[in-house]
Simulated scan of single mutants.
Amino acid sequence: MKAPRIVAAVLVGSLGSGLAHAQAPVNPYSYTCGAYIAAQQGQERGPANAVLYWAIGYLQGRLPPLPTNQYTAETFGKGLQEVHVALIRFCPNIPNMVIAEFMNNLAGDVEKSATAQQ
């Protein structure tokens, strides 16, 4: 009966040590457009990907239920691509802007556009 306890202790110990080496969470309120652009040129993509996923969630939570922001398994990839393209297109002009501010501005533009079309 000691073998399962030893295996469990080794497993728990290895999980704990793996957590110690994990990266700190990325903060979209301090991660800049410049950092996102730099990540496209070969740097660590993990933080940029985390910010991209945060951005999609932000839009989903901020915008009213419009057909264009209803993410399903089929459309989620398209939404990621659209936000990525927006970041790649505009971030070089505003490298010091944080991603949270960029997404707030983008969501505001989408809301104004939707209101104008009604």
Rank of each mutant, 00 (worst) to 15 (best):
A116H: 04
G61E: 11
P28V: 00
V26T: 13
E82I: 05
G108F: 05
Q118E: 13
I88M: 13
L11N: 00
G13A: 12
Q117Y: 12
S30V: 10
K78A: 14
Q23N: 11
S14L: 15
G18Q: 11
A86G: 07
A55C: 09
A107M: 08
P25Y: 06
R45E: 13
L15A: 10
L59I: 04
Q23K: 09
P28A: 04
Y36M: 02
L80C: 08
V26H: 04
A50E: 13
P65C: 01
I88V: 14
N69A: 03
P64V: 04
P64C: 06
L19V: 07
A73H: 06
L19E: 05
A50L: 14
V10T: 11
V83Q: 00
A86M: 06
N93Q: 15
V83M: 02
A22I: 03
Y31T: 06
Y36R: 03
Q117I: 15
G108Y: 07
S30K: 11
S14T: 15
E44V: 08
G34Q: 10
Q60K: 12
A50H: 05
Q41R: 14
R89A: 12
G16P: 00
Y53D: 14
P64K: 12
L59Q: 12
A8L: 05
I37M: 12
N49S: 15
A38I: 02
E111K: 10
A116L: 07
Q117S: 13
T68A: 13
P95A: 11
S14D: 07
Y53S: 14
S113Q: 12
A107R: 02
C33S: 04
L106V: 08
V26C: 02
T115S: 11
K2V: 14
V85W: 05
I99M: 14
A22W: 01
P28M: 01
P65F: 00
E101F: 06
G79L: 00
L87Q: 03
A3S: 13
P4H: 11
K2I: 15
L52K: 03
L19T: 07
I56N: 09
K2T: 13
P92D: 03
K112R: 12
Q118N: 14
Q70V: 11
Y29P: 00
E101A: 12
V51R: 00
N69V: 04
G42Q: 11
E74K: 10
I6S: 09
V83E: 00
G46Q: 15
Y58D: 02
L11R: 03
N104E: 15
N27M: 01
Y71S: 13
Q60T: 09
P95T: 07
G57T: 04
Q118P: 02
W54R: 00
V83W: 00
F76T: 10
L19K: 01
L87A: 06
T115C: 06
L19A: 09
Y31N: 06
G42Y: 11
A73M: 05
A39T: 05
V12K: 01
N105E: 12
I99R: 06
F90G: 08
N27G: 04
